[in-house]
Design a protein around this nucleic acid. Sequence first.
DNA 1: AGTCCGATCGCCT
DNA 2: GGCGATCGGACTA
Length: 204
Amino acid sequence: MTLDRSFFARPALVVAPELLGCTIVHGGVTVRLTEVEAYAGEGADPGSHAFRGRTPRTEVMFGEAGHLYVYFSYGMHWCANAVCGDEGEAQAVLLRAGEVVAGHELAAARRAGVPERDWARGPARLTSTLAIDRAHDGVDVCGDGPVRFEAPAVPVDPGSVRTGPRVGVSGPGGDGTAYPYRFWIEGERTVSAYRPGVIRRRTR
DNA sequence: AGTCCGATCGCCT
DNA sequence: GGCGATCGGACTA
């Protein structure tokens, strides 16, 4: 069953663990989500792009739930979030990792030379495998659009859901203790390796 | 106009 | 485990 607007129009911290095991479909490939991160809204979460308020880039986050917020990272990658909560709150869930469950041929072509385990292991790898990029910033995932989320045929055992610090988020509480907003399915091979959110050493 | 640096990845050692 | 790639957003002046 396709996830609808009411699913996303709840706090990101509620939506995030429920997205585990769900699939995202685009470009002929289906990925089952194994790892996500919640980002609370404006002013509530120093790790969020929306923390300092509305900007042209974060406009989509402040809009209606059930749309994709896609941002450009490190000059070469695209990462995708599902906008959550009430309009104006700018809550979102980052899609961090998953496993390809359909469309293996297309995925293999897009990720030539990469082991299958790594096809969607990491937020930018996930978008690459699904062929999601800047063109999908703001798209509605609840309608008849090209991007859809589906509830799992077999629900994830709540006992296998783990919580911990987010990856690569620094600043206040950057060690993760203040914002344990990362959720993953225990024992999944596609969950990205843990890297503590340490302050990056300056290189020049 | 200029600077800083990032919700990362892939390749190298 | 380290580091370079590569560029746009946000902030400073």
